[in-house]
Every structure is written in structure tokens, then in C-alpha cells.
Design a protein around this nucleic acid. Structure first.
Lengths: 99, 99
DNA sequence: CGTGTAAGGAATTCTGACACG
DNA sequence: CGTGTAAGGAATTCTGACACG
């Protein structure tokens, strides 16, 4: 479930190819805390497919002129939704209170 | 289904960390046609999570002393099984002849 | 604020080869 | 056969900064 999508294995150059965003943009969105890549021992950034998806969403918002500060709030909102959904799923699985 | 698992986005250094295999070994198994990484324009190899799994299987076989030639035959055998399984699934979906 | 760029250094990856066996 | 290693070059990534606005 969290295995391939969230594993941080993609280098910034590949993320650039996957998203079309410049290295500068990708690093800047990290600085603004929209994404959270990991670092290898030598300090190179590693991204997950999930990060790539988020970057694609960011690119859309940016084209609409939305500022990074606003985008961060939106992303946190949808993160919360995902968490809630997962939590609900877990609870349902345990207590079998669905339908 | 084929999206994240088969997308070639992982560089050889990361594959080394994920599998514990040396760069030399990883490249050699490609030479012996056990795995098929893609190349970027500049020629660097890119692997998928699926390739990483295959490499893990190769490592196990090699520890048992199995030669690369034999391993290739085994891998092709399991590839065939996977293909058959997928094909059967497709057929079932279309003709609803399951159970 | 968001992004481009030149700068210098450090780490990565590539290939072909010699080595051992 | 399978893997290590030294070799030299090319490409990648990093950071901090100046620029425009």
C-alpha cells in the first residue's frame, strides 16, 4: 500500500523529466515546504512517486497564479483528508461497523 | 497496475542501496540479460521497482550457486507464468467464464 | 515572491580492461 | 564464470548568491 508509491528513490533530474519543472522550482517548493524529499548520506535529494504527483498538482496551481503559501495550505488539507480516510478504513476493518 | 512498479526511474546507485549488490554485479546481470534497464539520453541506466525485485531473486539464486544462465531461464519461466495469468484474467473479464 | 543563471566543488555513472580463477 | 578494481572522462547535484521584480 505505501510501498512503491512512497519510497524515496527518484533523483531530482528524473523528477525534472517526469514533471517538466526546473531543478530550481523543485528545490524551491521544498524550501517552501510543499514537498519533503529525503537525503542520501551525500546529500542528494530523493523523491517518491507521491512527491511527483504532488509536484504536478503544484504546477497546475502555480499556472493558475496560486501562491506557494496557499498551495501548502491546500495540500495539508488534502493530506488530512487522506489520513482521515485511512483512519476510517482501519476502524471499519477492526469494528466491522460499515454499512 | 503497471504504473509505479514498472516505471524506470531508479539510478544504479540507489539500486545498489536497495539490493546490496555491487554496481559491477548489477551491470553484469544486465549483460547476461537477466534485467533490462532503460537508458537516459546521456546513457545512465534507470531501473524499476520490478527490476529491483528481480535482482533480489537473482541474489538469492546466486548464493545457492546457480549460474546466470540457469537464472535467466527460470526468470523467463516465471515471466511466462505472469503473462499467462494476465491473459487469463483478460479473457475472464471479457467472457465472464470464471467459476 | 518565484525563478533564472553562473560558479566551484563533490559525488555519480559510464566504458573497456586487467586480474583471479 | 562472476566479480573486484584503477582510470579518465562526462554528466549530476549541491549550496549560496546576484538578478529581476
Amino acid at each position: 500500500m505505501s510501498s512503491y508509491k512512497h519510497k524515496k528513490v527518484i533523483s531530482i533530474g528524473t523528477v525534472n523529466e517526469l514533471t517538466g519543472l526546473s531543478l530550481r522550482q523543485i528545490r524551491y517548493y521544498e524550501e517552501r515546504e510543499l514537498i519533503y524529499p529525503e537525503r542520501t548520506k551525500r546529500g542528494t535529494r530523493k523523491y517518491s512517486f507521491s512527491d511527483v504527483e504532488t509536484l504536478l498538482q503544484i504546477a497546475d496551481k502555480r499556472e493558475e497564479g496560486v501562491q506557494t503559501y496557499e498551495i501548502r495550505k491546500d495540500l495539508q488539507g488534502s493530506d488530512k483528508k487522506v489520513m482521515e480516510r485511512m483512519l476510517r478504513g482501519q476502524l471499519n476493518a477492526h469494528f466491522k461497523m460499515n454499512k
